[in-house]
């Protein structure tokens, strides 16, 4: 909607003059651009309002329509609200996630069973050779 140049902000404007389309860039003030881009505080999502009131807010991904930045104006002050950190939380295991000691016990049990199986297999093959 706007063009930013070192000379300032401009808004594209087209007019039809004698059958020709004339494209102009009309200068606009920065405050015009700010007002056009900024969302009114009352119309911002609830978590964005909380972030402005308290400085930060943490929300579940499911509660966010789109992970993006917000440019918000509240009582003449402009705020930028942007995601700064994502925390991955393992969900779905819950109580089924075995405690560390249980995992160690299962691992040890596997070793013992494996060694016992090797010894037993050796005995069986020895017996087979003797009977042959």
């Amino acid at each position: 909607d706007f063009v930013r140049t070192p000379e300032g902000y401009f808004r594209p404007n087209t007019t039809l003059e004698d059958g020709a389309l004339v494209l102009r860039l009309d200068p606009v003030s920065e405050s015009t651009v700010r007002d056009a881009l900024a969302t009114e505080f009352d119309r911002a999502p609830e978590y964005v309002q909380t972030a402005i009131r308290e400085g930060t807010v943490t929300v579940n991904e499911d509660d966010v329509y789109e992970e993006s930045r917000f440019y918000v104006v509240r009582d003449g002050t402009y705020y930028l609200v942007e995601p700064t950190a994502n925390e991955y939380v393992v969900t779905g295991w819950g109580w089924r996630d075995p405690p560390h000691i249980a995992v160690e016990a299962i691992r040890l049990g596997g070793w013992i069973a494996g060694v016992a199986l090797l010894v037993r297999a050796g005995e069986w093959s020895e017996r087979g050779r003797r009977e042959a």
């Binding site: 930013r4 651009v33 807010v57 943490t58 991904e61 930028l80 609200v81 995601p83 700064t84 994502n86």
Partner: peptide, 14 residues
Amino acid sequence: ERITYEATEADGVP
């Protein structure tokens, strides 16, 4: 996944 948003006062147009 949890997302943290931070609000800062913006001096210019972002």
